[in-house]
Amino acid sequence: SEFQINEQVLASWSDSRFYPAKVTAVNKDGTYTVKFYDGVVQTVKHIHVKA
């Protein structure tokens, strides 16, 4: 599913667990740039983002 900029989502971290994050960019290659609550910004594949 498509997510929008500033949408609150759950994004997987390197430990494969999902954490609350905010979408900061929707990228043309189908990835999302997300910002976790601790301030870390990461680009993740769409399969690693869920509502």
Rank of each mutant, 00 (worst) to 15 (best):
residue 1 S to D: 10
residue 1 S to M: 13
residue 1 S to Y: 14
residue 2 E to G: 12
residue 2 E to K: 13
residue 2 E to Y: 08
residue 2 E to Q: 13
residue 3 F to N: 04
residue 3 F to E: 05
residue 4 Q to F: 09
residue 4 Q to T: 10
residue 4 Q to V: 09
residue 4 Q to S: 10
residue 5 I to G: 03
residue 5 I to P: 07
residue 5 I to T: 05
residue 5 I to Y: 05
residue 5 I to W: 04
residue 5 I to V: 13
residue 6 N to D: 12
residue 6 N to V: 05
residue 6 N to F: 09
residue 6 N to E: 07
residue 7 E to Q: 12
residue 7 E to Y: 01
residue 7 E to T: 08
residue 7 E to K: 01
residue 7 E to S: 06
residue 8 Q to W: 15
residue 8 Q to P: 11
residue 9 V to I: 09
residue 9 V to R: 02
residue 10 L to R: 01
residue 10 L to W: 09
residue 11 A to D: 04
residue 12 S to K: 15
residue 12 S to A: 14
residue 12 S to R: 15
residue 13 W to A: 13
residue 13 W to T: 11
residue 13 W to V: 12
residue 13 W to L: 13
residue 14 S to M: 13
residue 14 S to V: 12
residue 14 S to P: 09
residue 15 D to P: 05
residue 15 D to E: 09
residue 15 D to H: 02
residue 16 S to L: 08
residue 16 S to Q: 10
residue 16 S to D: 14
residue 17 R to N: 14
residue 17 R to I: 14
residue 17 R to A: 13
residue 18 F to P: 01
residue 20 P to A: 06
residue 20 P to M: 05
residue 20 P to I: 09
residue 21 A to P: 03
residue 21 A to T: 04
residue 21 A to K: 01
residue 21 A to W: 01
residue 21 A to E: 04
residue 22 K to H: 10
residue 22 K to N: 06
residue 23 V to K: 01
residue 23 V to T: 02
residue 23 V to Q: 00
residue 24 T to W: 01
residue 25 A to R: 08
residue 25 A to Q: 08
residue 25 A to K: 10
residue 25 A to M: 08
residue 26 V to N: 06
residue 26 V to M: 07
residue 26 V to T: 04
residue 27 N to S: 03
residue 27 N to T: 04
residue 28 K to M: 11
residue 28 K to Q: 12
residue 28 K to P: 14
residue 28 K to W: 11
residue 29 D to Y: 00
residue 29 D to H: 01
residue 29 D to C: 02
residue 29 D to M: 00
residue 29 D to A: 00
residue 30 G to A: 00
residue 30 G to K: 02
residue 30 G to W: 05
residue 31 T to Q: 02
residue 31 T to E: 04
residue 33 T to L: 08
residue 33 T to W: 04
residue 33 T to C: 08
residue 34 V to P: 02
residue 34 V to W: 00
residue 34 V to R: 00
residue 34 V to Q: 00
residue 34 V to L: 04
residue 34 V to E: 05
residue 34 V to A: 00
residue 35 K to V: 14
residue 35 K to H: 09
residue 35 K to G: 02
residue 36 F to Q: 00
residue 36 F to R: 06
residue 37 Y to S: 11
residue 37 Y to Q: 10
residue 37 Y to F: 13
residue 37 Y to R: 06
residue 38 D to L: 06
residue 38 D to R: 04
residue 38 D to E: 04
residue 38 D to C: 15
residue 39 G to I: 07
residue 39 G to F: 07
residue 40 V to N: 12
residue 40 V to Q: 13
residue 41 V to N: 05
residue 41 V to R: 00
residue 41 V to K: 04
residue 41 V to L: 09
residue 41 V to M: 08
residue 41 V to F: 08
residue 42 Q to H: 11
residue 42 Q to N: 08
residue 43 T to C: 07
residue 43 T to I: 12
residue 43 T to S: 06
residue 43 T to F: 06
residue 43 T to M: 06
residue 43 T to Y: 04
residue 44 V to P: 03
residue 44 V to F: 00
residue 45 K to A: 12
residue 45 K to Q: 13
residue 46 H to P: 15
residue 46 H to M: 12
residue 46 H to A: 15
residue 46 H to S: 15
residue 46 H to I: 12
residue 46 H to C: 13
residue 47 I to M: 11
residue 47 I to P: 10
residue 47 I to C: 12
residue 47 I to F: 10
residue 47 I to A: 11
residue 48 H to W: 10
residue 48 H to E: 10
residue 48 H to Q: 14
residue 48 H to G: 07
residue 48 H to R: 10
residue 49 V to L: 14
residue 49 V to M: 11
residue 49 V to T: 06
residue 49 V to A: 09
residue 50 K to Y: 08
residue 51 A to T: 10
residue 51 A to G: 10
residue 51 A to Y: 06
